[in-house]
Design a protein around this nucleic acid. Structure first.
Length: 249
DNA sequence: AACGCCTTCAACCGCATCACC
DNA sequence: GGGTGATGCGGTTGAAGGCGT
């Protein structure tokens, strides 16, 4: 797009892991010339890769502003909440996590979060089966529509005692905050003081851009997304008891 | 030390969408 | 409107390292 089709030399493209030399070439080239046309980047940068591979390497690894390392508990909660809302829309989720990329989130989900949720659900299943005779599940959680919630691997209650059901609370509060431009939610008042705070919390809370797509902008997009609004309203309805936040409707 | 299994994560692949001709 | 190429996204694969035996 915005790039003239190149007369393809059909060169043999290298595959596999990138060497430091390749990284350096790509980084230097993109920083100097930009990447208006990825298919021409490897040619001009002297790389034996295809444009697609270069693009991926740049976006996932070389791009400035990427946040490497462990995910914070707050980021966990964002991922869980947004995955609940959006499903496997990793790029959409990544838009709300400054410095994180879709591939990283996807990997993190498959290697950690998914298992954590499965564990919680397993525990809950055990608990409910042990108390099934006196089940107090509301009717609206036993019908088909309610399966929407549980089938999406939703953490109704997290296994971390110090973290209660944060995601839903957080998201509800985000929404009301975003609408009112209000103050910091209580959920964040318990000393979120990590190094990432300035890049993670503030942009979101104030709704401005961080690098190439901030916490705030990502969320604003979500709020503007009619389908997501429908989803969220629906979810709010059927599991409203879990929300502390109010004023959404 | 050697082997096998498991987990993690970078990278690839296929498909959908978009833009241009 | 159809063909073609570029880009973006999500699913999947495979190399590498960790860990237990």
């Amino acid at each position: 797009m915005g790039c003239k089709p190149s007369d393809k030399p059909k060169a043999k493209h290298r595959k596999g892991l990138w060497s430091p030399e390749e990284d350096l070439k790509l980084k230097n080239y993109v920083l100097k010339h930009g990447h208006l046309c990825w298919s021409s980047v490897p040619i001009n940068a002297g790389l034996q890769r295809n444009g697609k591979s270069c693009r991926l390497r740049w976006i996932n690894y070389l791009r400035p502003g990427l946040k490497r390392g462990m995910f914070t508990p707050q980021e966990d909660d964002v991922i869980l909440s947004l995955h609940h809302l959006l499903g496997n829309k990793w790029s959409r989720i990544a838009q709300s996590l400054p410095g994180r990329i879709d591939n990283e989130i996807k990997n993190y989900w498959h290697s950690y979060l998914k298992k954590r949720i499965a564990k919680v659900e397993n525990l809950e299943a055990q608990h409910t089966s042990s108390t099934s005779e006196s089940s107090e599940l509301p009717q609206n959680l036993t019908d088909q529509s309610a399966s929407f919630v549980t089938d999406q691997a939703v953490p109704m209650h997290f296994d971390l005692p110090q973290r209660s059901p944060l995601p839903k609370l957080l998201f509800a509060e985000w929404l009301s905050l975003d609408k009112e431009g209000g103050s910091k939610p209580a959920a964040y008042s318990d000393g979120y003081n990590q190094a990432s705070a300035s890049s993670f919390e503030d942009p979101f809370m104030n709704g401005f851009v961080f690098n190439e797509g901030g916490f705030g902008t990502g969320l604003q997009d979500l709020l503007n997304d009619a389908a997501v609004n429908q989803l969220f309203k629906f979810e709010f309805q059927i599991s409203g008891n879990d929300f502390i936040g109010s004023g959404w409707e």
